[in-house]
Design a protein around this nucleic acid. Structure first.
Lengths: 245, 245
DNA sequence: ACCTGCCAGATGTCAGGACAACACATTGAC
DNA sequence: GTCAATGTGTTGTCCTGACATCTGGCAGGT
């Protein structure tokens, strides 16, 4: 029970705990650490890696939060049984598709500054009727229509361009503008397609659609984006992993 | 900027960091700490509460994970703007409804030990055809049908009774049996109702349904439950909050 | 054979200190 | 007036050390 070979580079700017977490994560994905396997104890790991116990603990906590491993007091730490699936976390649809090998593309239907609707104003924390950027996109995967997305953003946060939206996706633009999205509240539901939606998405009227409304905040606690997304239920599902502390 | 009054009880078995986190959380929910407000610095808090900085940090981290507050290096800690919504986390539908003031009830359609279907076997990590407990329930909220849930559990983990399922809910039974559910992988989608489903749920055939398949694991990393849930989209939606570390 | 108490080993909690990295405001030079 | 350098305060990371609490196995007595 010595576990995978893990080396830390103290000259790297990457935090030590993160280096350790990444290498354990990789070992689990590679199957080197099989489901049910026990990890070395925190003290053993600290000794072997030349790190302190708090640092090792921080690394392990990171993996627990990701749902990869489980801790039991008095017993030890084990790899979660069953295959590992990665959740969407805070990635955009663009990144999500690219990761699963599908070709994303986007058609921007609308991009303008408008008066903020009351419902959006409440979510974004601005006064109704104030100016906000409004955005409506039809998203494709491998050339097939997949989703209609409508987004509202406060003005002056970032300058959206048609070009950038088509090639990079909204979240990449936000990141490039120095905005760090830290979290979001999401509401996921379903409803039947209207005639207009059905035509855009290539479904029949009344076809089931997966809906998600999301309000995302950045590292200043500001709400930076409110989105209403509609996915073809026949082509898309959301994956979420939940882990308690 | 002294913040809410927070007192810690060192004689309590509740961890200090948890006491602090709970009281901050309560102050935010009460509105005593308004969105955008800054918290005292970690050092000030540690000094005021008579705690060490790591303990205060742990408390704050807990709130960041819950999506209540946001930290910025070099600047400080702020309450997230916008109203706070709590996510479902790992609660059962039973608890979820009770919390929002709706009366849950359950009709158990099936409760038996069966040979494990191949698809479920893969999720639970058992061999196909082996004995598993199978469970099918129709759930109501305030007397109206809301969802059909089908669950599979490994045998010998817990003894399910009709009585317990109707009065307490599955997750309460698991907890009472000493099983500590720590995390789950969920897949959320939508599809149209079949004729049989529509009749059970009081919807029309083809009506949109919200679907969720969930595989939950306990603190030993064992998969303890696999569920396929079907909700009336007209009456139910899932809420999820995501927060990055 | 069974039960009880003890013990080793593991994670959980907490303290106190140190330095690094970063953001922002202020000050100073040009 | 503008811009760069500096200083202050904050969170991020990492260390050492200690004790608490829980689990599971073992030894011993019944």
């Amino acid at each position: 029970m010595t576990g995978p070979e893990i080396v830390v580079d103290r000259s790297s700017p990457v935090p030590l705990y993160f280096q350790v977490a990444e290498q354990f994560s990789a070992a689990i994905q590679r199957g080197e650490l099989a489901p049910g396997d026990r990890l070395d104890s925190e003290l053993q790991l600290a000794d072997r890696l030349g790190l302190s116990r708090p640092t090792v603990r921080q690394a392990i906590q990171h993996l627990v939060d990701k749902g990869l491993i489980v801790r039991r007091r008095g017993v030890g730490t084990q790899v979660v049984r069953g295959e590992v699936r990665r959740s969407v976390e805070l990635t955009s649809l663009h990144d999500d598709l690219a990761r699963t090998g599908r070709q994303p593309s986007t058609s921007v239907l609308e991009l303008a500054t408008v008066a903020c609707p009351a419902q959006v104003a409440a979510a974004l924390g601005v006064t109704a009727g104030s100016a906000v950027q409004h955005l409506r996109r039809l998203r494709f995967a491998d050339g097939e229509p997949l989703a209609v997305m409508e987004n509202w953003l406060p003005p002056d946060l970032v300058r959206l361009t048609l070009d950038g939206l088509q090639s990079r996706g909204l979240y990449a633009i936000l990141r490039a503008a120095g905005l760090r999205v830290r979290g979001a509240q999401q509401r996921i539901g379903a409803r039947a397609a209207t005639a207009a939606e059905a035509q855009m998405l290539g479904e029949r009227r009344g076809a089931p659609l997966l809906t998600m409304t999301r309000t995302a905040y950045d590292d200043q606690g500001r709400y930076v984006e409110h989105g209403v997304h509609i996915y073809r239920a026949s082509r898309y599902a959301l994956e979420v992993t939940v882990a308690e502390r």
